[in-house]
Nucleic acid binder design. Structure first.
Lengths: 349, 349
DNA sequence: TTGTAAGCGTTATCAA
DNA sequence: TTGATAACGCTTACAA
């Protein structure tokens, strides 16, 4: 079924049918209704490709994910597509699968990622997407877009080199600050920290927040209390040795590493929230698995998707964004693993 | 840049350029190389839409997910896209988001899902996908495809009503059988089971495997030892009362419910793998969170994606599949939570 | 308000 | 092996 055939059925010209289908108002109500009725009856649907040749805008937004299997990605994509599609745009998802295609020590090798990105960009270019949202697997300074890339682009869970793209990210510093403030409010002053990989922006920013909170509370920052992990449970287990430094609380920068701390406690016959306080980050699993349930800071994945959607739609329409970099706040989840510090010195008699 | 302009640059006709670009072998090596060189230099890319009007096949496979946020979905999609794209096809992902759009008691309401599916099918139809892979959020008998649906379709993590579509699923019965056999091999004879929702095919089939294994071992099936859960940790916690029926092992049909059992044990001062054996299903989290680490049965998500990809490509090419329904086996993960039954009666003196 | 006809950038057909 | 030329299904000037 084509416009031509449909037009014949309606007793009008193809042009008129096209006008009706595209919501033009240069058609009489009578013919419009008649055409619409017949469209309904015949279940006619325009050929998307044919119309896209002639039209300048495709109403398609391309979504590029670094890795769909990274746990942070699906919620972002979900919110993103929901919002974009609710505005009448379509989405096309391209997954780079960097985690399965790269060895761990290559995750930051821009030239590798660039190699994966290139064909995908070509693809998106040839389907003439109106805009692109790039969803990172972890916050990294992106240098992977070629210089001649001109399609409107928003990056999320990643930062663009310089001011090139609009970016939407986690407010990591505030997250670290909130968590530390909370631990301090529970009477903790010697707070051990297990960071993620040291060169990682999440680690750096969260630690910045930790320092800021300590500083505000008049507590001297002690580098001895910082252990570097690599986000895995195993590294949290190893870093758990920080226990021996007389800390009353340990904050691991993700829940996986906190789970490693739980293992150490188990081995020593200790309990989080009773003998020592333990906090995580991400809220990867709600309160389901760790016992006692873990106090953590929830990543704002849905909100990041929503904000990114707004921004790319603005960009596509040629509107100016109010700012170029957005930091979305996390949400503290107070559970059982952090309790008041019983070792707090009372005010001297 | 269009073929026309490019052809002029190359000093040949548009048709010849097209032939080169499409790998036809009716062009001399000399002109081919020349054209290819200039294509490279000018970074020319054909307009996807224009070529798709004329071509009968689009080389696009549509992937429809019931819910991308269901933990089983991304691995399937990942493997699926990898395979499909490695064969020179493209993929377009459409996500129905049924979990956020439906209340829990509506998850099996076919007419609701049908309502979400309809516009997506229209969309895929209008971009003329060569085939469709439908990725369910849990195994369900699908009645949601309209009668006039003729595009080659494979369903995975779902079963088609009757013999309509090729399907790729988990070998749930074998999974239940293997797990029960393993528990029996560790000396357990009174094995409590916490099922998922009772009307669910996963529950039914896994229980079937349990019964089969018991039967082979000469153990009478005791309905008293079966508790119905609903896949959530909370329901596993409630069903944990099965402890009081003198079981030496509990098998929860997913890891979330097993986590609920861990909570019950914690409250009672018991330990999985020491005082009682506990097994799960899914291997949702590897050995990271539950302590002691849980013995479970890993879902074959990647393999399901691979098989589905093979099948849809076969279907698209008009080849006959060797069978219409595939069951992919799970992989037992032996960890710490199941140990030998110390209460086993020795052979009578 | 409607119809006619000329594109859009490709690929397919057929003749040279 | 190449080049004209006619499709493909739709949109859009422009004419009626």
């Amino acid at each position: 079924m084509t416009v031509k055939e449909l037009a014949k059925l309606c007793g009008v010209s193809p042009g008129t049918v096209s006008n009706v289908l595209n919501g033009k108002n240069n058609v009489s109500d009578a013919t419009r209704n008649n055409i619409l009725k017949i469209v309904e009856e015949t279940d006619y649907h325009p050929n998307y490709f044919a119309s896209s040749i002639r039209k300048k805008e495709t109403q398609i937004i391309g979504i590029i994910t670094e890795d769909l299997n990274q746990f942070t990605t699906p919620p972002v994509v979900d919110a993103l597509t929901e919002r974009i599609e609710s505005k009448g745009y379509h989405t096309v998802l391209m997954n780079m699968r960097i985690y399965s295609r790269l060895k761990q020590n290559e995750w930051n090798r821009s030239e590798k990622i660039s190699g994966f990105l290139q064909p995908i960009l070509r693809e998106l270019q040839s389907i003439k997407v109106d805009g692109i949202v790039y969803v990172g697997a972890h916050d990294r300074e992106l240098t992977v877009f070629p210089d001649n890339h001109t399609i409107p682009t928003v990056v999320t869970y990643a930062t663009s080199k310089g001011d090139r793209f609009i970016s939407v990210n986690i407010a990591d510093e505030d997250g670290g600050y909130d968590m530390t403030k909370y631990l301090m409010s529970m009477g903790h002053t010697r707070i051990g920290v297990i960071t993620g990989a040291g060169n990682n922006r999440h680690s750096i920013n969260r630690l910045q927040g930790y320092k800021k909170a300590l500083n505000e509370g008049g507590i001297r920052f002690d580098p001895e209390l910082i252990e570097e992990g690599d986000w895995t449970m195993e590294s949290g287990y190893v870093a758990g040795k920080i226990l021996d430094k007389g800390v009353t609380a340990i904050w691991a920068m993700n829940d996986d590493m906190a789970a490693g701390v739980y293992r150490v406690l188990e081995e020593r016959g200790l309990k989080a929230g009773k003998d020592i306080s333990v906090a995580g980050f991400d809220d990867r699993f709600g309160n389901r698995y760790l016992i006692p349930s873990i106090t953590t800071d929830e990543l704002p994945l849905t909100e990041m998707g929503i904000k990114s959607a707004e921004m790319i739609l603005k960009a596509v329409r040629g509107e100016q964004p109010e700012q170029r970099h957005f930091l979305i706040p996390c949400k503290m989840k107070i559970r059982e693993s952090v309790t008041e510090n019983k070792q707090t010195r009372r005010s001297p008699a």
